[in-house]
């Protein structure tokens, strides 16, 4: 089980990691500032295995791959939203961070609720209820299964 950090609609990449931190040399230095403008305690309170749950259009805005990268570095197990912005979605899969479309979860959970995700079956359990996730396109599922684009490319070679 992991704890839910719940965010609203149209969370943009500047809110996930602001541009002034993109100049830090490593993702580990950047990750301390994740979601800083929305929740100053986020980076301190999140634990490996926790989840980010959001409404529509999560990750809109810039192409910065640091946005999914800081979430992964903090140990976020998956981001579950009603919908994702295109570039964030692709970047997350490419670095091996599961991004899951689930239309019903957001409206049924509160911040700090607990949930569990079974990636193989695509099922989420929270508050005694089960939620079904939308399947990834086969191409993306295969990149994610390999652990990201680099592992996937190495496999082809």
């Amino acid at each position: 089980m992991g704890k839910i950090f719940r965010f609203h609609t149209d969370v943009d990449t500047d809110q996930i990691i602001a541009s002034q931190y993109l100049l830090f040399p490593t993702i580990d230095e950047m990750k301390e500032h994740t979601f800083e403008s929305l929740d100053t305690d986020f980076a301190k309170s999140v634990q490996p295995g926790d989840f980010v749950v959001a409404c529509e259009n999560f990750g809109c805005g810039s192409s910065r791959e640091q946005a999914p990268a800081v979430l992964k570095a903090l140990g976020i197990k998956a981001v579950i939203a009603k919908s994702f912005a295109r570039i964030f979605y692709r970047n997350a899969i490419n670095i091996g961070l599961p991004v899951i479309v689930c239309k019903d979860l957001y409206d049924s959970v509160k911040a700090n609720d607990e949930m569990e995700l079974n990636l193989e079956s695509g099922l989420i359990e929270s508050n005694g209820k089960t939620f079904t996730c939308t399947k990834l396109p086969a191409k993306m599922q295969s990149i994610l299964n390999d652990g990201g684009l680099i592992a996937s490319l190495n496999k082809e070679v």
Partner: peptide, 19 residues
């Protein structure tokens, strides 16, 4: 627009998958 991992992949292969 794309991320830096995908860009690195194009730099090596010249290809990119798209829907």
């Amino acid at each position: 627009g794309i991320g830096y991992t995908e860009m690195a992949s194009i730099l090596g292969t010249g290809e990119m998958w798209v829907k």
